[in-house]
């Protein structure tokens, strides 16, 4: 149950403004879907939430506290690719977070302590349906299995905030539906606050309790460098709404190509 507050955040790379004056507050246990055209700065925004990069201006607070200056276990991350370690089996990938915590010097446990950690990790794998693949290396897993593994790996640290960067982009629709339900279960049970970048509006609306779109409002070439993307719409969704209503909202938005009526272009609720 973690509240996040983003205050006047700007980000530029060598004078090229990418994000411009982003402000919004996120209620505890939200599932925020971030959408927007390619290159508008969604991944950049997640990297700032992770402290992989610092905002050029403005600040991000978690529970009222400023973010640590480097990535910390309170914020878990699932990247689109390269989230899991190729040299560790599925089980070892999940156990890694526990081993690092319990063995500061070697980052590796032996004997009974190792068995205890592996048991815990096995439960984590079980939760994402990967128990049968526990001894396989990531290269032997399908794309969907690798992403589920990445989720289990991140969740073992019980992060308060989970960041997902197009986690399901490469998956086919059938597997995606399964993983969506899994994601909703995990989000509900762990009480995490989730930020998910997605290119798929259906997915964004289906999973999110709130959908936020970034886009550039000024697109004339001479304005490109000086103006970045900002929040163009921000739609709260009622998780209690029947799924059909939420999907319909997604399809409406898609049909209008994100050109939503002014009435729901509420910036920051």
């Amino acid at each position: 149950m973690t509240a996040v507050s983003i205050r006047n955040v700007w980000k530029d790379y060598d004078g090229q403004v990418v994000l411009e004056n982003i402000s919004f507050d996120v209620a505890p246990h939200s599932f925020v879907s971030l959408v927007g055209p390619s290159g508008c700065g969604k991944s950049t925004f997640l990297r700032m939430l992770l402290s992989q990069e610092a905002p050029s201006r403005g600040e991000i607070r978690v529970e009222g506290e400023p973010l640590a200056s480097e990535p910390m276990p309170d914020r878990g991350m699932v990247f689109q690719k390269y989230s899991v370690y190729p040299h560790l089996t599925a089980l070892e990938n999940v156990a890694l977070g526990l081993e690092l915590e319990r063995s500061p010097l070697l980052g590796r446990l032996f004997g009974a302590r190792r068995r205890a950690v592996l048991e815990e990790a096995a439960a984590g794998l079980e939760a994402v349906g990967l128990a049968p693949a526990r001894d396989k290396y990531p290269s032997q897993l399908s794309g969907g299995m690798q992403q589920r593994l990445a989720i289990a790996q991140a969740l073992i640290k019980k992060p308060r905030i989970l960041l997902l960067d197009e986690p399901f982009g490469a998956l086919d629709p059938g597997i995606r539906a399964d993983i969506h339900d899994l994601m909703l279960d995990l989000w509900w049970n762990t009480k995490m606050t989730v930020f998910m970048v997605s290119h798929d509006l259906r997915e964004a609306f289906y999973l999110g309790t709130r959908v936020i779109a970034f886009d550039r409002t000024r697109t004339r070439p001479e304005e490109q460098a000086a103006y970045g993307a900002t929040i163009t719409f921000d739609i709260p969704l009622d998780p209690a709404d029947p799924i059909k209503a939420r999907i319909r909202a997604a399809e409406d938005a898609a049909a209008k190509d994100l050109d939503l009526p002014v009435s729901i272009q509420t910036n920051g609720i």
């Binding site: 276990p73 991350m77 977070g97």
Partner: peptide, 24 residues
């Protein structure tokens, strides 16, 4: 991503070397 991910799993610089970099 691997180095950042290790930090989100709580790894120190030394642990990043012993568990992520060296084995690879």
């Amino acid at each position: 991503e691997q180095i950042v991910k290790a930090q989100t799993l709580g790894a120190s610089t030394w642990q990043i070397i012993t568990r992520v970099v060296l084995p690879q």
